[in-house]
Design a protein around this nucleic acid. Structure first.
Lengths: 153, 153
DNA sequence: GCCTAAAATGATACGTTGTATCATATCGAA
DNA sequence: TTCGATATGATACAACGTATCATTTTAGGC
């Protein structure tokens, strides 16, 4: 079984465990995100879907599917780019802390890294002192990946 | 002279110093951002402009003006919210390092705080190790301000 | 002051993104 | 198999942003 099939199967089990359904369309969209290995916008997914399955999928459906997948913590929405990535930890069973996403502004490749506990504490402290509260402990940083840096040079 | 007039005057001098022109419209938009004390979208600025000056301003103009102001480092674009804020340091003459914006997801109030040198170093390290390079040293964090937290309770 | 080139702004049309709404299809349990 | 709930489709539309060309304004030389 391919790596992707294995991840999908894991995701399906995760959904079943609490009565959610990873339907065929949802699997297809999730698979596209996993395969692409980068962040994709809703409309990029629509185009990809057309290419891959030779069938149109309505924007509405894609947005709904993405919303579902996000709720299941199978994908993350990157607000900086208005794109979506497959969660790097679908196949882990443990929960994760604050996540930090490095997003290549040119090719949309995304790396999901974790933040040191000390930085998290400092961030919390800063936010609290400023009279704010963290909503989503998710930090997105605009970057360029080395591939794109080299190409540009 | 009001605080805002003083800031505007400072901004105008800053522009003149390198042959840029802070025109009347640009001043008006900048003043709106300073007055509002929060992040505003382009279309919010259009509506505000209509209210305040009883005159329509085209979307195109607002976008161009915002682009200009951003180039002059008089406003920042917050990519997380697709909104703009007046730079908190217009009236300083020194340059600033990495900036961190705390954005209230409910009322768009923005606080511009600075990051400790150690955190910046760590961020740089993390990014480099992951094979990326920082583009804009600007970090935006999704928060709720205490006012909105209290109201919601 | 007047003229001219450059810079700034206006107006129109259009492309993209996202959503509201109602219709249709599919699934799962009785 | 049937029925209610869930998921998907189709259409129209609202919001956001930009391309393009027309018009106005500005600064500087005469």
């Amino acid at each position: 079984m391919s790596r992707i099939d294995s991840i999908i199967q894991h995701a399906e089990q995760h959904c079943k465990d609490h009565g959610a359904r990873l339907t065929a369309k949802r699997k297809q969209i999730l698979a596209q995100l996993i395969q692409s290995n980068k962040a994709l916008s809703a409309y990029e997914l629509i185009d990809l879907y057309k290419d891959q399955y030779n069938e149109k999928i309505p924007a509405m459906s894609v947005y709904r599917i993405l919303e579902f997948l996000e709720g299941e913590h199978l994908v993350h929405k990157l607000n900086l780019a208005n794109k979506y990535v497959a969660c790097a930890h679908i196949s882990c069973d443990h929960s994760h802390g604050v996540q930090q996403f490095l997003i290549c502004g040119n090719c949309s490749k995304v790396k999901e890294v974790s933040i040191s506990q000390s930085t998290i504490s400092e961030l919390n402290e800063t936010v609290k002192d400023a009279g704010y509260q963290l909503v989503s402990p998710q930090i997105e940083v605009n970057c360029l990946c080395n591939d794109c840096v080299l190409k540009a040079a």
